[in-house]
């Protein structure tokens, strides 16, 4: 692995990521404008653990949409131009790490009342100082964690 702070130009996908981001923005906009709901995925999932009458089905529907999205992309694969391919996902972390990370993410996002979608996208788009603090906090913790695991402890 190369050392030093340099941009990985071979894997950097500015246009695809910008386009994907715009799709996230469109989805977020649709949900707030039509349903009056903030698209914060961990909050939507957590609402199912504390179900309230008449407040469950839309959550299930949205999660089903997320889960079904790879199938839609696969179905549209025929039309994908050759310059545009979605890379096969790669999960580097070992099983116990994945499980531990899942638990921390579950607890942490509930205490923070939001995750990357709720604070990072919706909160920043609402110009919420609270969400800005949350986003800076989880970004900083993410940067530090990856620095420690990949450059100090060499366990990832």
């Amino acid at each position: 692995m190369r050392r030093g702070r340099r941009v990985d130009w071979t894997h950097f996908t500015p246009w695809a990521s910008l386009l994907g981001g715009i799709l996230l923005g469109i989805a977020t906009s649709l949900l707030i404008l039509f349903n009056g709901r903030v698209l914060g995925v961990c909050g939507i999932v957590a609402g199912l653990l504390r179900p309230e009458r008449g407040d469950t089905l839309w959550r299930v529907a949205l999660i089903a949409g997320l889960v079904a999205s790879p199938w839609l992309v696969r179905g549209l694969a025929v039309f994908q131009p050759t310059w545009f391919t979605i890379a096969a996902p790669q999960i580097d972390a070992d099983w116990p790490v994945v499980a531990g990370a899942g638990i921390i993410v579950g607890v942490g996002t509930r205490y923070a009342n939001g995750c990357t979608s709720g604070h990072g996208v919706c909160g920043l788009a609402r110009l919420s100082p609270r969400s800005a603090i949350a986003t800076v906090s989880f970004m900083a913790a993410g940067f530090l964690t990856v620095f420690l695991t990949q450059h100090v402890l060499h366990i990832a």
Partner: peptide, 16 residues
């Protein structure tokens, strides 16, 4: 809570 989430995010690369 956000810091804890960030640690988990950095360990596995997954958010919800």
């Amino acid at each position: 809570g956000s810091v804890a989430f960030g640690v988990g995010w950095g360990l596995a690369g997954f958010c919800p």
